[in-house]
Design a protein around this nucleic acid. Structure first.
Length: 490
RNA sequence: GGUCUCUUGGCCGAGCGGCUAGGCAGCGGUCUGCAAAACCGCGUACGGCGGUUCGAAUCCGCCAGAGACCUCCA
């Protein structure tokens, strides 16, 4: 019980102490991407958020099964009944086989996630790979009496469900309000109520993604996959379900209803929702046309970007804000994050070179405690980072002989930074090229700078400055240190 | 229209009734042949108006502005 993690549960709207269903084990499900386009900055938010959660849960000793799905069918492009499947639509536009579209963007997503150093989940199920499970779930819901068949499609009976169970708990919605506010869409005559949603949809003749079922040749409803797959891999009741805030209604509300209708009990114990990324104060979203793809961030090829940003900068940028706050994108903010991260990573390097003394004038234990306290408080990474920056001062002061550290404390400090910076926050140092060529050129630069040291010893400032300035022109940053020099290629 | 959330110093962002995070940028200093880096110090912000309280950025009310969801969305 050393680390008592508290998680904000959307269901109760407050922070709750996290106690898993089965001691020592955690079942975590997160809504993954719909693979019909390039991943954008918004996709990185939940990925990084729940990656942090995944890493932290493992760090504090849990065995975690992390399931994050790939949605490759079931989301309609437009209005519920008249629209067509997103994937199918994209396939027609590009004249590709639907699964080809899915594969392209799945590969893309994986690549981006790897660049962001997001760990792969334990299981990454695809909706199309679980049609049978989804059909079974439809059958269960029908058998329980919370769905009805209409013209080859099966609809969830929201009103009947709402009579027996609370509906709208998660999103704070009242069914009466929904009834008066629901927009009337075309072709809803198949439904008994506009609130009802399809759990199996009959495919129109031109619809290319279709599977046989007893009701019709069709495809599963938009919300069903998560219910079917989370329960398949994590059980009828599991610990944590995460996703973007925009999924709270109707997606997660529908999930709750489906699972309860099918199994008679609540599936999820803790609901977590990450907030949105905004651009000029407005949500960044594909449908809003203001999304910047991750690839564009990494290459800098977008009108709004002043430069290319390292994936680690994006990651750090996100960690510097709490996951439940909106995070506003700007070049200025991103560059501030970039510099801050560099300073942090540099301090970690400095830390490796520190020498222990007999006595400590710094309080490592307290620093460590504060970092864990922040993480336990609903994954407050910005607070933890703030404390790590306090530690940066500590490290630099020790390096400057303005403070000292004992061997024990030094070990602890190293372990703290290695744990937080690399294991939990998942940051990586800038890639070193390595190899024989690199080594040779590094020695050449060292040689030049050694000549500069000699020049300095002879007070030959002209030569010394020339070496430094010329190297600077080539992109090298040279710094003098107490006993020599250091350099890096910017 | 309904439901909900937010408004913090030049920028980004913590904060959840007293002890006034942190990063970036800026200013002054130390160090340095000069730089760079680092270190030290500085700037006292909480949309407006009221109220509760000994005390409010933090609680309540009103007003203003922004946003989210209600339709696919991370």
């Amino acid at each position: 019980m050393e680390n008592q993690l508290q998680i904000y549960n959307t269901l109760s709207r407050k922070k709750e102490v996290f106690i898993p269903l089965r001691s020592g084990k955690v079942g975590l499900y997160v809504c993954g991407p719909t693979v019909y386009g390039k991943a954008h900055l918004g996709h990185a938010r939940p990925a990084v958020t729940y990656d942090l959660l995944f890493r932290y849960l493992k760090h504090i000793g849990y065995k975690v099964r992390y399931v994050r799905n790939i949605t490759d069918v079931g989301h309609l492009a437009n209005d519920a009944d008249e629209g067509e499947d997103k994937i199918a639509k994209k396939a027609r536009l590009d004249e590709l086989e639907p699964m080809e579209v899915v594969q392209i963007y799945t590969n893309d997503y994986h690549k981006n996630m790897q660049q962001l150093n997001v760990l792969p989940p334990s299981i990454e199920p695809r909706a199309t790979g679980h049609i049978i499970e989804q059909i079974q779930t439809v059958e269960q819901i029908l058998a329980a009496g919370y769905a009805y068949e209409s013209n080859g499609s099966v609809y969830f009976d929201v009103e009947k469900y709402a009579n027996d169970y609370p509906y709208g708990e998660l999103s704070g919605r009242k069914i009466e309000d929904l009834q008066t506010n629901t927009r009337v869409l075309d072709g809803q005559d198949e439904k008994r109520s506009p609130l009802d949603f399809a759990i199996w949809k009959k495919a129109s003749p031109e619809h290319i993604m279709r599977w046989p079922s007893k009701w019709s040749d069709g495809f599963p409803g938009w919300h069903l996959e998560c219910t079917a797959m989370s329960c398949k891999y994590l059980g009828d009741t599991f610990d944590i379900h995460g996703g973007g805030m925009d999924l709270t209604f109707p997606h997660h509300e529908a999930e709750i209803a489906q699972a309860k209708a099918a199994h008679g009990k609540d599936a999820v114990r803790y609901w977590m929702h990450n907030n949105m990324i905004t651009l000029n104060g407005q949500k960044m979203g594909k449908s809003l046309g203001n999304a910047i793809s991750l690839e564009e961030f990494f290459t800098g090829e977008h009108d709004l970007l002043e430069k290319a940003y390292n994936p680690m900068t994006i990651r750090f940028f996100m960690l510097m804000a709490h996951y439940r706050s909106t995070l506003d994108f700007s070049n200025e903010a991103l560059q501030a994050a970039e510099k801050g991260m560099e300073r942090l990573l540099k301090a970690v390097e400095t830390l490796d070179k520190l020498e222990a003394k007999a006595e400590s004038t710094v309080d490592v234990k307290s620093l460590s405690g504060k970092c864990y306290e922040a993480m336990n408080d609903d994954l407050n990474s910005p607070i933890a980072i703030a404390h790590l920056f306090d530690g940066v001062k500590m490290i630099n002061s020790i390096a400057d002989d303005k403070a000292s550290i004992s061997a024990d404390d030094l070990e602890q400090l190293k372990s703290l930074y290695s744990t937080f910076v690399f294991d939990l926050f998942g940051l990586k140092k800038a890639e070193q090229q390595g190899g024989a060529n690199t080594e040779a050129y590094e020695h050449a630069i060292d040689l030049l700078l050694q000549l500069r040291v000699d020049a300095k010893a002879n007070k030959d400032w002209a030569t010394a400055d020339k070496i430094r300035d010329e190297l600077a022109k080539l992109g090298f940053e040279v710094k003098d240190t107490k006993d020599g020099f250091s350099w890096e290629l910017k």
